[in-house]
């Protein structure tokens, strides 16, 4: 069964085509890696799948629902860890978790238990009552991830979740996520620049570059196709070696000015 179906999806910002007629499917329970250089259109695609942005053209079906037409129903099906900061600085780590749990209607006892478990995994439990504005970039990132894992949706979108985290933390977090995936059949849809992560956990990879899909397959298939011995080499073979500038939007500039940005 396909839990996500994307058909001829396009997004234009003025004359600029950020996502250019892409189509793919994700099966239920799959660990799906959506890879591409900076500015490829990954976040824009995720924003369309998660009701935050209207497509210019094309169709998305998520858990049998069209997120454009039936936003309220679609929102019950997914969880998301955003690429950009989205925690409330004026609240404590615990309060941010609690807020999320109530919004997603996680029953109180489950909520309490999971908040403790997750904050321990991301090593923020002893800082749980501190205001987020006192946290470092890495701590905020860990909180964002913990919060995203608090409710158990059908599909979990993770947009560069582990960016900037040390290998130990990344391992802990991924093993927790893989456990969720196998125990509860939660579909994982993630983006990352760490090709090693994708190589070791993804069951399917789609590579997108300049808005277009350039390759689809399992990591093994992509490596075979490009005669590469790692996914990273396959990725470079498929997308070239030129460096992409990531253009920040107006809001991003503002955040950078406020030292909120940590890439």
């Amino acid at each position: 069964m396909n839990i996500i179906e994307v058909k001829n999806l396009t997004k234009r910002f003025g004359d600029f085509v950020a996502v250019d007629n892409i189509s793919f499917t994700v099966e239920k329970g799959e660990v799906f890696a959506f890879l591409g250089p900076n500015g490829a259109g990954k976040t824009t695609s995720i924003r369309m799948m998660t009701t935050l942005l209207a497509p210019s053209e094309g169709e998305i079906i998520l858990n049998g629902i069209n997120p454009q037409k039936d936003q309220a129903e679609a929102r019950k099906s997914f969880g998301i860890v955003f690429q950009d900061p989205s925690v409330d600085e004026e609240l404590t780590a615990y309060e941010n978790m609690e807020f999320h749990g109530v919004l997603y209607k996680v029953p109180k006892d489950v909520r309490r238990k999971r908040i403790e478990e997750l904050l321990k995994i991301v090593e923020l439990w002893d800082r749980k009552n501190h205001l987020v504005k006192t946290f470092s970039g890495g701590m905020r990132r860990r909180l964002e991830i913990a919060r995203g894992l608090l409710h158990h949706p059908q599909v979990l979108f993770l947009d560069e979740p582990t960016l900037g985290l040390d290998p130990q933390t990344r391992n802990h977090i991924w093993s927790y996520i893989m456990n969720l995936n196998s125990l509860e059949q939660i579909t994982i849809f993630f983006t990352t620049h760490y090709m090693g992560e994708a190589e070791s956990i993804a069951t399917k990879v789609v590579i997108i570059d300049r808005g277009k899909i350039v390759a689809t397959g399992t990591p093994a298939e992509l490596m075979k196709k490009t005669s590469a011995d790692t996914l990273e080499k396959a990725f470079l073979a498929l997308t070239g070696t030129t460096i992409r500038e990531e253009e920040a939007g107006a809001i991003d500039h503002l955040r950078m000015g406020r030292k909120m940005h940590h890439r």
Binding site: T50, T51, L52, A72, R75, K76, F78, I80, F82, D84, P85, S86, V87, D88, E89, H100, L103, Y104, K105, I251, L254, R255, M260
Partner: peptide, 16 residues
């Protein structure tokens, strides 16, 4: 809230 990114968190939640 929009500029600090927190608005996204409330807007994708399954609440009206």
């Amino acid at each position: 809230d929009r500029q600090f990114g927190f608005l996204k968190e409330t807007l994708v939640a399954p609440v009206s």
